[in-house]
Design a protein around this nucleic acid. Structure first.
Lengths: 195, 195
DNA sequence: GTCTATAGTGGGATAGAC
DNA sequence: GTCTATCCCACTATAGAC
């Protein structure tokens, strides 16, 4: 759609972030130019700088937004006291959330190298907070004698890597539905923790 | 070391590939310039084109070399008939091999987007051949009643994602040795396949 | 808030001397 | 086989008109 000089648009900001998310996920941060993002939105490159200080801030904002939303939605989930129920809930939540936002997930894992040192530290804190959610479940399960996990720290990283990997192969047009995939992983995770 | 015009060097080719491997792994393919690679080797940018047709071929060659070596070393391993022994062997091999070549592994997983369509197809064939190695072990184990794996295809992808994830956190200066990590993962993989 | 235009930098790849 | 020099192009970010 043609756009005219001087037109106002309070939704340009979100549209820029959506376009950047899509393009960064597809081609990688370094391979995407500000011109490409602007063209996707339908403005000139210079206009982007009304919404972001620079390209680096645009990337950091996307990653921070993704991880903050991940933590917020996780915190909003009801969690009872039973470690096994909490483990299942984490597995289902992680898979559902990641399959719903494959682009944000992809960027959050692949573009860490392209963050400035300050932004990197900030993002790592958020990521570690999320990993701690699962580690706590595993430790509680071990303490209660429900799980058998020799090394909860390593198991945490192993399970998260396993679950996140689903985004690399899952297709909605494939053999399994999202729920079926989640159930399959639930079973594998349960067994992995000796339950 | 200063280099002089006209000097010969049969090892420039390998040095270019080593430098490219290191820089691509650290900064990403798109973020690394041919000038950077040349500087790392100690030649001028133009000299690189005596060894590679272009930047894309350099990347594809690194990835092809990595996957071909992976398949060759895997094929060289002795494998008995016992599915459990083969599963353990795969786990230990995968972790050892990946921890020995973190840069090549990183590139092979992260830079798929930056391959031309032709190169991408070629690399995907190699990657799939490797995944089939594990899938075959799982299927044989199920057929012999040793493993309990409801979905061997999904389990294959889950195990490989879990094992490969070790490269994102393992440090030689950390709490565990490589062998200890491999044993920990062996135990987790065994349980995951219901064994 | 968006436009056009541009400053300033750096990119991939090539040509021709040595 | 490597050098220097260069072509041509794209990039980020900014300036100033509207």
């Amino acid at each position: 759609m043609a756009r005219t000089a001087g037109s106002h648009s309070d939704i340009t900001g979100p549209r820029i972030r959506e376009a950047a998310l899509r393009l960064f996920a597809e081609h990688g941060y370094a391979a995407v130019s500000m011109r490409q993002i602007a063209a996707e939105v339908g403005v000139q490159a210079g206009a982007l700088y009304n919404y972001t200080a620079d390209k680096q801030s645009l990337l950091a904002g996307l990653m921070r937004g993704h991880l903050e939303e991940l933590l917020a939605e996780r915190a909003a989930e009801e969690t009872g006291p039973d470690p096994l129920a909490r483990l299942d809930a984490f597995t289902r939540f992680h898979i559902r959330y990641h399959l719903e936002r494959p682009e944000a997930v992809f960027i959050a894992y692949m573009e860490l190298r392209n963050l400035s040192p300050d932004n990197f530290r900030e993002i790592e804190v958020l990521r570690h907070a999320y990993e701690t959610e699962l580690e706590t479940v595993l430790q509680d399960g071990v303490a209660q004698g429900v799980f058998d996990v020799p090394d909860p720290k390593v198991a945490t990283l192993a399970v998260i890597a396993m679950l996140t990997g689903v985004t690399t192969w899952y297709r909605d047009t494939g053999r399994l539905s999202r729920d079926e995939v989640a159930e399959t992983y639930c079973g594998m995770v349960r067994r992995l923790v000796g339950c």
